[in-house]
Nucleic acid binder design. Sequence first.
DNA 1: TTCCAGGCGTATC
DNA 2: GATACGCATGGA
Length: 267
Amino acid sequence: MDYTVDGKDIILKQPDFDLAQTLDCGQAFRWTALPDGSFEGYYLDSFLHISPESEAGVFRLHNTAERDLLDKWYNYLDLSTDYGELKRRFSEDETLAKACEYAGGIRLLRQDSWEALSSFIISQNNNIPRIKGIIGRLCEHWGGYPSLEDLQGETAESLGFLRSGFRAKYLVDAVRKLSDGTLSLEKIQTLPIDEAEAELRRIKGVGAKVANCTLLFGMYRTEAFPVDVWMKRALERWYPNGLPECVRGVEGIAQQYLFHYIRTAVK
DNA sequence: TTCCAGGCGTATC
DNA sequence: GATACGCATGGA
């Protein structure tokens, strides 16, 4: 990692990183684009305002202590991973080569497991602006993203203010099973991928897609491969006989490039 | 107005 | 095991 401290800010040199492609691509829902091209948002309770500097691949983390970069953002922004190397691997495949060329600044965020699980429960059969709206009301109500403890005792009725529709009862079931010891996210993190998915699917409203999003975005299980309506189209169109070998072990990261590519570049 | 959205539970065969 | 349908809400 290459950075310098500039007063209260940190200047970060980071190739293979684009703010919009990473923070506004449907993997996280608590980032806001500002008119000047910067973004502000949260990891757990930590706030970050980050903006691009004039020089490509250089970013300013506003009012950020060096300790916070090392303890939080280094991990969250997955700065230990060499995406240049990943993209070289992916480029063995013709379609992935185009997808990586099209949006080379995508990174996988290492999000909190509970936030990812609950966010993707809310995401089902829903569009990204409305997902952000529901999560915005959730965070506004609790003064930050609510923990499992915060949500104890909530019911589908008491969560009506979220206007999350039929998903509220799924959130309630997730809170209950994670609070009464039926399930443990800490334990699920350590399980083989198939068992981890099966455990998550014991929650009502958690199927293959939401489980894989939780594993990928909330537990950094890069082999998890969420298939939504967009990825179904991508698979039918480009990979009718399965994924190429070059993505093995990091299918989920390849998925991010393909998702963004088919959703925004291909008509 | 109708269609659709980073799906899933349930009924039915 | 596969397939069809309903589900809350609101933006396009």
